[in-house]
Design a binder for these strands. Structure first.
Lengths: 114, 114
DNA sequence: ACCTCATATTCCTTGACAAGTATATGATGC
DNA sequence: GCATCATATACTTGTCAAGGAATATGAGGT
């Protein structure tokens, strides 16, 4: 149980700004497509498309409710990501000094963009 | 402290398969570019480019070590992701039955990809 | 100064993906 | 059955990012 694997597609799905907004909206509870549309100010087709991507990554699930389609987050993927991150954090402590002061004051002025 | 925000760019960076592989390689410790190249079998220029993206997202840090450049993971982003995920997981328990059996046996045969 | 190793950068091409618009589906009520 | 509401899909277009190949940079050693 050392590895902790996560499908890159999960991250890719969350990497799109609008999709991340949708996910954060759904954190507070299930919502219909129409509600998401009006809350985020994105057009309905794009919302549907984004939800499709999220559904294909098993990040959300859909339930048909009367006339509406209610989308909700699925815990499994979040658990997977949680475990994945944990598998990294365990090592910070373990390795705090294993390589000495390899990176001590790493301010590393990073790559200047034009 | 309710929100827990993560830059979508962080997820986007991790969403690229090769980049995720690099990150997982680095989980076991800092590595030089050349080592990553030979371990993953990706060409050097792409590795450098991927590392650039990861560095711009503050996922990795670079240290010049003699002739080599040693890349290492930076804990901060992982902490951020960890908190972000936690902000979701706290709600699963809270809401376990709030909508009844909304998603019970959700096997949802998802959209068949070719 | 030159050569070489290690890595970064540029240019090019190609494929993926998101937004926009229009249209299709599908259930519901009349 | 027809109209309508809610949502999904199709098609087009523009943009951006990844891979490939070649080249540039830059530090070390001699």
């Amino acid at each position: 149980m050392s590895a902790a694997i996560v499908d890159p597609a999960t991250f890719a799905a969350l990497g799109e700004p609008s999709r991340l907004r949708i996910v954060e909206l759904l954190r507070d509870g299930p919502l219909s497509v129409g509600t998401i549309v009006e809350r985020l100010g994105i057009r309905q087709p794009q919302v549907s498309k984004h939800l499709r991507v999220l559904a294909e990554s098993d990040i959300v699930a859909c339930e048909v409710r009367h006339r509406h389609r209610i989308y909700q987050l699925r815990p499994e993927r979040f658990d997977a990501v949680a475990h994945w991150v944990e598998s990294f954090e365990q090592l910070w402590e373990t390795r705090l000094d294993s390589l000495g002061t390899l990176l001590q004051n790493l301010d590393t002025e990073r790559t200047g963009k034009p």
